[in-house]
């Protein structure tokens, strides 16, 4: 790990980080604000006004009438998937794909550090950013529910939802990072690191729309983050968490191995 590089990475990316944090905070405050502990039926009636297929595609489901069931369905069904995904794609491209493509990585590699410590620093930056983003939104969400609906939130399930989300983006981050590392050209790096997670995302949406194509969900990584199962307390979610962790570790190590041997035409 190279401290100077880590500082540099954080300085170069804090603006995007803050933008995503602001957007996610906005959505979570709107969604939490929509909750009405006395009248779950009213919300359901409001949701009924929307086309059902759209609601399904966005995974907007009321899992249960309590607060955790509400935000677990709305916020953790869609917002938590979409925004960190975009953040992860942008960040992994900036950390590897871009500097390999434009050659500015030459400045890093012409200082007395090994490629290994360099890529470990980049991976750490990515994980640290994802972690901090989700940690901050978790804390903000807790504060918001505490202000609006004191004592109503099931903290344990809430934290599980966020741990799962972190593991999901640990895995997705490893995919986008791998794409960014393998290719020499930006168009391939960014192309594939957008195509893979967005492809998974679309598959996940399609699979939710109709029962006929529900089998498609087995081809999407988002299936490994089952917000409904977490809220209803299924035991198998731990297996899914483990799978996400394994994918992440495997691909981050894979990226490192590829990078150590890679020819850099810079």
């Amino acid at each position: 790990m190279i401290k100077a590089l880590l500082t540099h990475n954080i300085k170069s990316n804090y603006k995007i980080f803050l933008i995503f944090l602001a957007v996610m905070t906005m959505y979570s405050s709107i969604i939490i604000g929509m909750y009405d502990p006395d009248d779950a039926a009213a919300i359901e009636a409001m949701m009924d006004l929307m086309p059902e297929a759209l609601m399904n595609a966005m995974n907007f489901t009321i899992i249960s009438g309590d607060l955790i069931g509400f935000i677990g369905g709305y916020y953790y069904g869609f917002i938590i998937v979409l925004f960190p995904m975009i953040f992860t794609i942008i960040l992994s491209f900036k950390l590897m794909g871009k500097i390999i493509d434009d050659g500015s990585i030459a400045f890093i590699l012409s200082t007395p550090h090994t490629r290994k410590s360099m890529i470990i620093t980049q991976i750490s930056t990515l994980i640290l950013n994802i972690f901090t983003l989700l940690f901050a939104t978790t804390i903000i969400g807790m504060l918001l529910t505490e202000i609006m609906f004191a004592g109503l939130l099931d903290i344990q399930v809430y934290i599980l939802l966020n741990v799962g989300a972190f593991l999901l983006f640990f895995a997705i981050g490893s995919i986008t990072f791998f794409c960014s590392t393998v290719f020499n050209e930006a168009k391939n790096a960014i192309g594939l690191s957008i195509a893979v997670p967005v492809g998974f995302f679309i598959i996940d949406m399609l699979a939710s729309v109709s029962e006929d194509i529900a089998f498609l969900r087995f081809f999407s990584i988002f299936t490994l983050y089952d917000n409904i199962a977490i809220v209803t307390g299924e035991a198998w979610i731990w297996l899914q968490f483990l799978a996400l962790l394994a994918i992440g570790i495997f691909l981050f190590i894979g990226s490192t191995i590829v990078f150590l041997k890679k020819d850099l035409t810079i």
Binding site: H8, S104, A106, L109, S110, T111, H113, T114
Partner: peptide, 20 residues
């Protein structure tokens, strides 16, 4: 490479900086 870099100065043919 990392040991060599301690005593090496390099100017690339097409220098790409961190533009920001």
């Amino acid at each position: 490479a990392h040991t060599i870099q301690k005593d090496l100065g390099y100017i690339a043919g097409e220098i790409a900086f961190f533009n920001h």
